[in-house]
Write a protein that binds this DNA or RNA. Structure first.
Length: 485
RNA sequence: GGCCCCGUGGUCAAGAGGCCUAAGACAUCGCCCUUUCACGGCGGUAACUCGGGUUCGAAUCCCGACGGGGUCACCA
């Protein structure tokens, strides 16, 4: 059997991480089995049309390396791959179902339906379409049709019995028809098919073998199967995926600003880290490996290792993955990637980016946090004298004043301002003085950085700052200490 | 509310009746390294939702309760 999977998003503007994960698994299943991965755009809801949204889908998938074998932009044997371009194809199928008694015309207006729905709710009941129009005679239907009365086509669902199917993740599922089935609309008043209908038609026409989708479709699957059966078509394999949650009680929501692929890229997450982490929410390889490239995932992915329970999207773990990926980056690649982030805080300053990058690589968890970490190099922060108090380093403002007084002339005397010279000169001066390293180096670092923690120590920072700026900051800090005394 | 799904530490998760005195990872805490922070190394805290069964034996099977989620549109 040929494996054919599809990603069928509706273009709403952004790529949701839950959707991305679904696409990933669909892609992986196809690749793992030497099959095809198809991209299909489901834009049957014209009210929701968003300009440029399909482009976002293309860009995100390509960016991640999730390449499709058939799709709107590259074609394929079963196109077109955009539902709005296939709109005329669905009505005949619906009519075929009307002929066979599996569907029927309905002339109830939306307003009437809303009224009845509200009335039902007022009575505390769940509204279900009552097959009102199924009772219409052939003549009545012909008459209304001839008069141009607006209509929809509804599925004639069974009201009794049960429906069962097998899901590759959740196992055997059985639903009572009375609770699950309803006469859902197949063709809308505007002539467009509903998602439910188009989905079945297209999946069949495109020979999709495995349908992978969110578990919110678990209970509506019997309705799709009813359609497949009505047409006499083969039902695809189903793989329903557990939801990706924000926390125990909320889905990753589009509103939280933390659900879109683009949000994370803008914050400075690496797509490789994102894909790697996403693959692991709801799936695991069965051994203890956690790091996977897309190519490796293509080899090890296995549907049987998919989980049933919802997984919470853990930003901390993602961040850890991201930091690991950043640390593993070849230095040159890191330097290139971090440069624009340095620019955000240091543009125009004469800073040795290469040396800074060396200091920053092991400290970078997310690129977006870089500017705040290095901004002190551009501008001396205001700081509190209390920073000089450090028990372990045995320093306080008084000790600091002495240490700085010791070190100032030493630094002043350095002609060739490089890290080694700064280090050696200062270290020997400390040794001569008999002071503890920490008692001198801690205050020095504070005096020129104004921060309790910095990427690199006193020597690195002094070097990066340059002699003039180092001396300037040192003098300022010494004065600050004097004023306090 | 009806129907359906899920339920191992804070999070991801291994586990498919004895190998469980329950892995591993993230987070957290402590120690070491160290001129701070980070990296790295070592170690600690921390879980089978509850109650009944079945069985010589249950995290694993069954039933129930509880908790959480999903779904009930001319949205997808």
């Amino acid at each position: 059997m040929e494996f054919r999977t599809r990603f069928a998003p509706s273009p709403t503007g952004f790529m949701h991480l839950g959707g991305l994960r679904t696409a990933l698994y669909e892609y992986l299943l196809a690749r793992k089995n030497g099959g095809k991965f198809i991209l299909r755009i489901e834009d049957t809801d014209q009210e929701r049309f968003v300009e440029g949204a399909t482009q976002v889908i293309y860009d995100t998938l390509r960016d991640c390396g999730i390449n499709w074998d058939e799709g709107p932009d590259i074609g394929g044997d079963y196109g077109p791959y955009i539902q709005s371009e296939r709109k005329d194809l669905y009505l005949p199928y619906a009519k075929q179902l009307v002929e066979s008694g599996h569907a029927y015309y309905c002339f109830c207006t939306k307003e009437e339906l809303d009224q009845r729905r509200q009335a039902a709710e007022a009575r505390g009941e769940t509204f279900k379409y009552d097959k009102h129009c199924l009772r219409l005679s052939k003549e009545e239907i012909a008459e209304k049709l001839a008069a141009g009365t607006p209509y929809v086509i509804r599925m004639n669902a069974p009201t009794e019995g049960t429906s069962s199917y097998h899901d590759m993740v959740f196992g055997d599922m059985t639903f009572p028809n009375s609770d699950t089935m309803d006469d859902m609309v197949l063709i809308k008043q505007d002539g467009m098919p509903t998602y439910n209908f188009a989905n079945v038609i297209d999946d069949h026409l495109m020979h999709i073998s495995h349908v992978i989708r969110g578990m919110e479709y678990l209970s509506s699957t019997p309705r799709y199967n009813f359609l497949y059966n009505a047409f006499g078509w083969e039902i695809p394999q189903y793989i329903h995926l557990p939801t990706v949650m924000r926390d125990a009680t909320h889905k990753l929501s589009k509103r939280d600003g933390d659900a879109y692929y683009s949000d994370f890229i803008e914050k400075g997450y690496l797509k490789e880290a994102l894909i790697n982490y996403l693959a692991l929410v709801g799936w695991n390889p069965g051994d203890e490996r956690e790091f996977f490239t897309l190519g490796e995932l293509e080899e090890v992915f296995d549907v049987s290792r998919l989980n049933k329970s919802p997984g919470i999207f853990d930003i901390d773990k993602l961040t850890w993955f991201n930091a690991e990926y950043i640390r593993k980056l070849p230095f040159d690649a890191y330097l290139e990637m971090v440069t624009p982030w340095f620019d955000k805080a240091l543009a125009g300053k004469n800073i040795d980016y290469k040396r800074l990058a060396e200091l920053m690589q092991s400290r970078t968890e997310v690129f977006g946090r870089v500017p705040d970490m290095v901004r002190f190099l551009a501008e001396m922060p205001e700081y509190d004298l209390d920073l000089y108090n450090n028990k372990k380093m045995k320093t306080n403002p008084e000790v600091a004043a002495e240490s700085l007084a010791l070190v100032r002339p030493v630094l002043e005397g350095i002609g060739d301002w490089n890290e080694t010279a700064i280090h050696d000169t200062v270290m020997s001066a400390i040794a001569e003085s008999g002071k503890k390293n920490g008692a001198v180096l801690w205050p020095l670092r504070i005096a020129i950085s104004g921060l309790a923690s910095t990427p690199g120590g006193a020597f690195e920072i002094a070097y990066l700052l340059g002699k003039n700026e180092t001396m300037r900051r040192l003098d300022l800090s010494m004065e600050k200490l004097r004023n306090n005394a």
